[in-house]
């Protein structure tokens, strides 16, 4: 059906009405809609380092069921994923590899540092390990625990969702210090 008359501008009261959905339509910003879509289908890279990876896989299986949050797909290729969960200790030998994986992910992209080793070196504080993955890639959410329980990881993911909902559409690269521009 063609619209013959221009739609009248909405008053604030009418807009508030619209937000409740009583008129059959929802009003919001584009940013809100995009961020909502991003949080509801975040695809993590299939990437496990150590013990925490076991708990990460438990999070995906029947008892915890991460797919409630639109995350059932773990992508084996970083080029198809927008979230990397660094689950486990990061050795200096592995550090260039993880930086490369991060660089290969398309933007926008987020990082969860899962567990004590990835966040700060944990109990393995010696020459062979990077003392925290944030020395290599920018981290959005840290999840504490050795290893964190699956519930803790899900809490971290929900925190990330809250963070993503507040993001702006433009200037993603600037806020990350231009790091997305690098090619590995």
């Amino acid at each position: 059906m063609a619209i013959t008359q221009p739609l009248p501008l909405l008053t604030p009261e009418q807009m508030a009405e619209g937000k409740t959905g009583e008129n059959g339509l929802l009003v919001g910003t584009l940013e809100m809609a995009v961020n909502w879509a991003r949080t509801q289908s975040m695809w993590p890279a299939l990437f496990g380092l150590a013990c925490c990876a076991i708990e990460m896989m438990h999070t995906q299986t029947s008892r915890m069921d991460m797919s409630r949050f639109g995350m059932e797909l773990m992508r084996a290729s970083p080029r198809q994923s927008d979230l990397i969960i660094v689950a486990g200790r990061l050795s200096r030998k592995m550090a260039p590899v993880i930086r490369r994986i991060y660089d290969q992910m398309p933007e926008p992209k987020w990082v969860i540092s899962m567990g004590d080793c990835a966040s700060c070196g944990g109990i393995f504080n010696n020459y062979a390990l990077v003392q925290g993955v944030d020395e290599i890639i920018p981290v959005d959410v840290y999840v504490a625990g050795c290893p964190p329980r699956p519930e803790a990881l899900m809490h971290g993911i929900l925190q990330l969702h809250e963070k993503v909902k507040l993001e702006h559409l433009d200037g993603w690269r600037d806020r990350k210090g231009g790091y997305g521009l690098r090619v590995g």
Binding site: R89, S91, K93, M94, V97, F124, N126, A128
Partner: peptide, 21 residues
């Protein structure tokens, strides 16, 4: 060696019981 953290070196630094975890 991509997950090498030299467990054995840490083991020599720790007390006997400290190696258990």
């Amino acid at each position: 060696g991509y997950m090498h953290r030299n467990h054995e070196k840490i083991g020599e630094r720790n007390l006997w019981l400290g190696n258990m975890p």
